Amino acid sequence: MPTQKERNAETRRRLLSAAREVFAEKGYAHASVADVAKRAGRAHGSFYLHFANNEAVLQALLEDAMAQLSLESKTLWQWDEPESGVHKTVRRFIEAYGEDRDLWLLLDQGSSLESTFKKLSDQWFHKLATSIMHGMASAGTPALMPGLDPEVLAQVLAGMLSDSTRALYQENPSWTPDELADEISTIWSLTLGYDQVSTSPTDHA
């Protein structure tokens, strides 16, 4: 027999899943707590045992998606095969973003209206840029121009990846995820020199 903790976890999972469906169907602005509770097969009052309102539900959904995307986008770069690692990292980011495209669209919409979601968006971008900077540090940057700040460059690369991926899934351009991954990883590799110079354990040290 499930414990109370397990039952609570299941109810929370059902509410999150139901909210995602309702938000997609009706739009976040038109979804009600009653809609979410009904879709989850739970009493209206049980909703408030887990969430204060729909904003809290959406925030939880976004935080879960961000945690997963952060895990997926952890650098795969290695000093011996940085160019291959860059492509794998970029490709998986694009795939993971596509799997939760409905939530990222809601985040974009919410960021322009509510400070809570703007803060989440800013935090996520900072995490992405930090992950890229760590990847650059671990693999080395043989072609990095003297005086160029790696932190600033990481933010530029993060903006390129996140904005291009957003356009891919929200604006329906003619390019495919594979084409986008190839283009971005090629630009990154050229910028950082991975296609010209092979690093070594000595160089990395």
Rank of each mutant, 00 (worst) to 15 (best):
A143C: 01
M160Y: 11
G98T: 00
D178S: 12
D203W: 12
T199Q: 02
S131P: 04
G45A: 04
F51T: 04
M160P: 06
E55I: 00
D149L: 01
A65N: 07
H126L: 08
A205S: 08
R42V: 07
A65H: 05
L120Q: 06
T130Y: 04
M1K: 03
A34N: 04
R91N: 14
R12N: 02
R7Q: 14
R13I: 03
T141N: 00
E72H: 15
V36D: 00
L105Y: 14
Q170L: 11
F93W: 13
Y194K: 06
S174G: 08
P173R: 07
L71F: 06
I132K: 04
M66F: 12
V33Y: 02
Q155A: 15
D102I: 14
A34T: 09
N54P: 01
A137R: 15
M145F: 06
L107G: 10
E99R: 08
Q155K: 13
A139E: 01
G193C: 03
W188C: 05
D149F: 04
R92A: 09
M160A: 13
E10S: 12
T141K: 02
L161Q: 04
R14F: 00
W79P: 03
I94V: 11
R101K: 12
P82Y: 07
A37G: 08
Y194H: 10
G41H: 13
K38V: 02
E21T: 04
H204W: 02
S200P: 01
T3I: 02
A154R: 15
H204K: 01
F117Q: 08
Q59R: 07
G135L: 01
F23D: 15
M133C: 09
R166C: 13
E6P: 11
E183P: 00
Q78R: 15
Q4E: 02
L61K: 03
Y48H: 07
S164L: 07
S84L: 05
E83R: 15
S73M: 10
A34K: 14
S200A: 08
I94S: 14
E171T: 13
E63D: 02
